[in-house]
């Protein structure tokens, strides 16, 4: 099976910075994700705590992780686009 790209992407001077940002975002998400697991294993009762509107912490945290993933993705996209604008434009100007 071929896995080639649909089109050549050209030189991207922002790629190293984007990769670094990705690693930071990964650690941030890992911290929150691991937090859920740690609370579950070490202080299980806390997950049953009613947070608001009759919803417990497990549900709020779980849905929160899903929503946060989406928000983080949007932020990642915006920041990557900005890096590309800045760094690739500078290079073109030289």
């Amino acid at each position: 099976m071929h896995h080639g790209p649909a089109a050549e992407l050209g030189t991207d001077h922002a790629s190293a910075k984007k990769a670094k940002l990705g690693v930071w975002f990964f650690y941030l998400y890992l911290f929150l994700y691991a937090g859920f697991v740690v609370v579950g294993v070490l202080n299980y009762e806390l997950l049953g705590l009613e947070v608001f509107g009759g919803l417990n912490l497990a549900i709020v945290y779980g849905i929160g992780l899903i929503v946060f993933a989406v928000l983080l993705g949007v932020l990642y996209n915006n920041m990557c686009s900005r890096y590309e604008d800045d760094l690739n434009k500078e290079e073109t100007g030289l």
Binding site: A19, G22, Y29, G62, L65, I66, A69, Y76
Partner: peptide, 29 residues
């Protein structure tokens, strides 16, 4: 629901950690 949380989180790992560096290698799998 743990599976829902984990499946989506896994996707984030793929995007943040693997996608960009792998693209720099010019390879796709």
């Amino acid at each position: 629901f743990l599976y829902s949380i984990g499946f989506l989180a896994g996707w984030i790992v793929a995007l943040f950690l693997i996608a960009e560096p792998l693209k720099r290698l010019g390879k796709y799998t």
